[in-house]
């Protein structure tokens, strides 16, 4: 099962976390009246991660007596970070503390480094220690630390959600009680890139077409990010969002990740419908966090 796991995997990430610990978060908090209302308040946070690098996050706090369950949104492969995901019912901010982080390079955290799309996935990819996602993973850990430090947060109900970085965060940081993860980038990455032609994984094949001699180094770097090697560290109750049946990342395609998680996850195969997929996730999260009925957008009710 551990075939392909780098021998220095533990040391690599221990060093990354040790480096992060050298920098105090030094959080600045600023209210955002434009996006606040009677039922919730929104804040913009600025804080420091490894490097040092100054980051940004949106923090939403429900009105009323806490503590509240929390939803931590890990960054996806996009420059834009929103207070809550596009299409989510804005009323969820009245139930959950919401936290969405702009890791280094993303909008609001793009000075001095601005990530390129396409481009980010191969930035520094020939050296595991220079690979941009090493810092981004540290950013995600720092974000969860900050969220958990908030007195409004019920530490027994912290749901980390997103793509690959959600699982990496739940593995590297303390305190994720629930995890919703849709793997796409860092699961058997070289194999997936070679078998497909779509972006963002095509960034890797583009890169190797230009630098065929770098294949071994690229594979070595990516092996430090494979979700299978993080999975044994995940203690959160987990929902894996698999691709549609028959796709490379369907339930059977994810089997080695499923097997690597210490607690059997719930696995949902996409129905190729944002509505059906979204309904399932919202219902799962609401149920698992003990919140009862999910808060759904108007056209899903």
């Amino acid at each position: 099962m551990s075939e392909g796991r780098p021998a220095d995997f533990e040391g690599y990430w221990r060093d990354a976390l040790d480096e992060l610990a050298c920098f105090p978060p030094s959080v600045e908090t600023e209210a955002i009246p434009l996006r606040s209302n009677d039922s919730s308040s929104l804040f913009g946070l600025r804080f420091t991660s490894s490097g040092p690098y100054r980051l940004f996050a949106y923090l939403g706090i429900p009105t009323g007596e806490g503590p509240f369950p929390a939803i931590y949104k890990a960054p996806g492969y996009s420059s834009v970070v929103s207070p809550i995901p596009q299409g989510a019912a804005s009323q969820i901010r009245s139930r959950y503390v919401t936290f969405s982080i702009a890791a280094r390079g993303l909008r609001n955290a793009d000075k001095p480094y601005a990530a390129e799309f396409p481009g980010l996935l191969t930035d520094g990819i020939e050296d595991p220690r220079a690979y941009r996602f090493r810092g981004i993973a540290a950013d995600c850990v720092r974000g969860l630390e900050i969220l958990r430090s908030r007195p409004e947060v019920d530490g027994s109900r912290v749901s980390v959600q997103g793509g690959d970085l959600a699982l990496i965060t739940a593995a590297l940081a303390d305190g994720a009680t629930h995890l919703v993860c849709g793997p796409s980038l860092f699961y058997r990455t070289m194999e997936m890139a070679r078998s497909g032609d779509g972006y963002p994984l095509a960034e890797i094949t583009d890169y190797l077409r230009q630098r065929p001699g770098a294949a071994e180094a690229v594979e070595s770097t990516l092996s430090h990010f494979d979700l299978r090697w993080f999975a044994p560290r995940v203690s959160a109750s987990t929902l894996l969002e698999a691709g549609p049946a028959g796709s490379a990342l369907d339930r059977s395609g994810l089997q080695s990740l499923i097997d690597a998680l210490p607690n059997p996850p719930d696995v949902y195969e996409s129905q190729r419908s944002n509505y059906k997929d979204g309904m399932f996730v919202e219902t799962w999260v609401s149920d698992k966090l003990g919140c009862g009925e999910p808060i759904l957008p108007e056209h899903w009710r």
């Binding site: 995901p85 989510a88 019912a89 804005s90 056209h299």
Partner: peptide
Amino acid sequence: ELTRTYPYEEINDYLRL
């Protein structure tokens, strides 16, 4: 009026302020 989701919610945010 039909939905309270972003991005259209940006307009409701603006009108609230």
